[in-house]
Design a protein around this nucleic acid. Structure first.
Length: 247
DNA sequence: CGGCATGTTGCGCA
DNA sequence: TTGCGCAACATGCC
């Protein structure tokens, strides 16, 4: 599921299902996913009307009419789905929000996701960097770090919403070595990377099968030059790249 | 069975 | 103080 484009698609459907509706029932039994507690999930949400569903990076924020809010991070396998009111739990369902005619369910097989019902913003939201879709990419922030550019791109405080796939693909399109220290790159390359991040997001926002050029393609020929795709670990994450194009 | 996975956090250690 | 590597979280898939 989850990188910025997926989360944006989830935001749109959640907004469609919930905006302007009054929450009649909200419940969860999962004390791992729902923080600070399953009881606070119900207490904060029930009886409130939904004002807006927003997104920043990979986080969603559901604003309520009394100023409280629900934060939702989809982790690796999270999603929100709508079913008929009173329908039995979905497979891997972790929480339920009934509002208007909708019964909206949070499903998450691996439970890496989070639901946080609070009265004020959480640090994970407040410390997010600019969102590429709404704010653009802050190239100057990247130019300040000596970390590998791919790790910098995935740092949510520098760029919000870029994950392993977008970082890997954007660097291939920009022909930049993912291992290169970010601050050693030419300004021109950084601008190209920013542009390719935006293009990759746009590609993945379009419905239909996205085909990746290098992500998950170790050992296969580079679509541009035919060299064999290599992969290395950067910040603990598999990073595929073309040793010839991205030299 | 082993290995890998679109994400994040927290811990030990240099 | 900073940064890095790594395990952990829980499950599915090849």
């Amino acid at each position: 599921m989850p990188e910025l484009p997926d989360v944006e698609i989830v935001r749109k459907k959640l907004a469609r299902w919930l905006t302007g509706r009054k929450i009649t029932d909200a419940s969860t039994r999962d004390a791992w996913v729902a923080r600070p507690s399953p009881r606070s999930f119900s207490r904060v949400l029930e009886g409130r009307r939904v004002r807006a569903v927003e997104r920043r990076g990979k986080w969603l924020r559901v604003l309520l009419d009394d100023g409280a809010r629900l934060f939702s991070h989809l982790g690796m396998t999270g999603d929100w789905v709508r079913v008929a009111k009173g329908a039995p739990p979905e497979r891997f369902e972790r929480a339920r929000i009934d509002a208007g005619a909708s019964s909206v369910r949070y499903v998450d097989a691996r439970r890496f996701g989070r639901l946080v019902a609070t009265r004020k913003d959480i640090d994970e939201w407040s410390t997010l960097g600019p969102d590429p879709l709404t704010d653009g990419v802050d190239v100057s922030a990247l130019a300040k770090t000596k970390r590998a550019v791919k790790e910098a791109l995935m740092d949510q405080t520098l760029v919000a919403g870029v994950g392993n796939i977008i970082a890997t693909e954007a660097l291939w399109h920009a022909r930049v070595d993912p291992r290169a220290p970010a601050r050693d790159l030419e300004a021109r390359d950084l601008r190209t990377i920013a542009r390719e991040i935006r293009r990759e997001i746009d590609r993945e926002l379009r419905p239909g099968q996205t085909r990746w050029s290098v992500y998950g393609k170790r050992g296969e020929p580079c679509p541009r030059c035919g060299s064999k795709i290599r992969s290395v670990k950067l910040g603990g994450r598999t990073t595929a790249f073309c040793p010839k194009c991205q030299a």
